[in-house]
């Protein structure tokens, strides 16, 4: 409990935390709206048959996830960069406990951030779609509710992944490079990969599967909650790797 309070003081006393929180909300909403504004130009033209008004509300998560992962990563990387980690580990020498505490505080901050981000992005996008006379999402629909919850879950998992990568790389730029590769580059390149590798990478790659979880389109492969589960398992393994790394290495 004391360590949680300590990590909370650390998180809230740095302006970076709040800039990243605000940045996640704003950037996600703006990018989602930009995605829709692209449709507006030729909305009279045929919409794709599988037009997904829910999924399109969360296009901005693609960029927002980078910010929320950075929020997680900097809980460790800022301590390694400044040397604060020495004090933290002297005061709390059990490294697994320090990792668990940072994960918990980050998950809570990310949860609050994700709820606001997803609510704003969904609300603004639906309003924009409605104003343009395009089809909107059906909120009482189970698929829509599931997609909304999965979008929140995906952002929280990305933040947790960020903490783990921060502990492993110990460097903001290193963590950012891995996050961009995992969350953006591989999903973008996977369809171009040949044969089975491309199929597997395009379907089971954790962030690809995770990103599929907040759409209602059933595009085959891993969709819905199963996609989020793939992301969760990947995050869990990375967290375990962070635990092993923290224990084994000198601070």
């Amino acid at each position: 409990m004391d360590l949680l309070a300590s990590e909370w003081i650390k998180a809230r006393s740095i302006r970076t935390t709040w800039l990243l929180v605000a940045g996640t909300v704003v950037v996600t909403v703006v990018v989602s709206l930009l995605g829709i504004s692209g449709l507006l130009a030729d909305w009279r033209a045929d919409l794709p048959a599988d037009f997904d008004p829910t999924g399109i509300s969360f296009k901005g998560v693609l960029v927002g996830q980078i910010l929320v992962a950075t929020l997680g990563a900097q809980t460790f990387t800022s301590e390694y960069a400044t040397g604060q980690i020495v004090t933290s580990l002297t005061v709390a020498p059990r490294r697994a406990v320090l990792l668990a505490t940072k994960l918990a505080v980050t998950a809570l901050v990310a949860l609050a951030t994700a709820v606001v981000t997803v609510a704003c992005s969904f609300g603004a996008s639906q309003a924009a779609l409605a104003a343009a006379g395009l089809p909107t999402a059906d909120l009482p629909d189970a698929g829509t509710v599931r997609a909304i919850l999965c979008a929140v879950g995906y952002l929280v998992l990305t933040a947790v992944l960020g903490v783990a990568l921060g502990a492993i790389t110990r460097s903001s730029s290193g963590a950012l490079a891995v996050v961009v590769t995992v969350a953006l580059l591989v999903p973008a390149l996977a369809p171009g990969l040949p044969g089975l590798v491309g199929d597997l990478a395009g379907t089971y790659w954790p962030t690809t599967a995770g990103q599929a979880s907040y759409t209602t389109a059933g595009a085959g492969g891993v969709t819905g909650s199963a996609g989020l589960a793939v992301m969760a398992v990947f995050t869990l393994w990375t967290t375990l790797a962070a635990h092993v790394t923290l224990r084994a290495r000198d601070a």
Binding site: D2, L3, A5, S6, E7, I9, K10, S13, I14, R15, T16, S78, E79, T82, G83, Q84, I85, V86, T87, S88, T90, V91, A92
Partner: peptide, 28 residues
């Protein structure tokens, strides 16, 4: 044990009071 290994090892954006409060709470 209380230790100071490197005086510069403190987050530059955090106030002295917040820094000490975080350390204090961590140790109960």
């Amino acid at each position: 044990v209380g230790a100071m290994l490197d005086a510069r090892a403190v987050h530059p954006r955090r106030t002295a009071g917040d820094h000490l409060a975080a350390v204090a709470r961590a140790g109960g």
